[in-house]
Amino acid sequence: LEARLEQAAMLKRVVDAIKDLVQDCNFDCNDSGIALQAMDNSHVALVSMMLKSESFSPFRCDRNIALGINLTSLTKVLRAAQGDDILTLKAEDAPDVVNLTFESPESDRLSEYDIKLMDIDQEHLGIPDTEYAATITLPSSEFSRITRDLSALSESVAIECTKEGVKFTCTGDIGNGSVSLRQHTNVENDAKSVDISLTEPVALTFSLKYLVNFCKAAGLSDRVRLCLSNEVPLLVEYGLSNNSYLRFYLAPKIGD
């Protein structure tokens, strides 16, 4: 494997966004790119990352390899990279280590690290293709704000989407709260728009602790997409350039 990223910031942010949710992960490398799928310890949430080969330049992967990496270790090494450094990942066939180099675009500084790999016996889950009943695309900062504000009151949030819009409601010991958003087009700045596409009304309840955690990815993208259907996991997607993505799935709370 040899994969060169123009900006180390992308990998730094991805790892930062998932490291509190999942610890030891296989980075599955093949000629289409680098993928990661992992559940949190309590099997409530699933992280699915895809960094397409087009996000790297150049990208070369001659044989499929799984790089088992501890994300705490990777975080320690990535801390040594500046956001605008050029980052190159390298691994041999049947590797013991993954090699990372960080090159400063402005100076002749080159740093190089090896991280020991681990054997991780990870189960891959089959994520079915789903036609979601409701898809909401909103500013990622807005979604972060809603989850943060409501998590101060309650452990869980009900998300209801109807043709009127989407409503986030919570009930806690000190009282209750809600935030409603309507479809809204911002003509000055499309990134601030709220798009709602609905085929049938949905109402689901989720743990806010996980949603707050997912929002650590907000720095990766101005926009976030929420996909919901009744009685299936919520999909929270942060799109990256070149069709790469970071997706989180969250199992709903089960009704009384």
């Binding site: 409530v44 189960e123 891959h124 889950l125 996991p233 089960i254």
Partner: peptide, 14 residues
Amino acid sequence: NPGQGNIMSFFGKK
């Protein structure tokens, strides 16, 4: 964690 669904009951093992 009562009332919390498990992701594996929605997405089967590959």
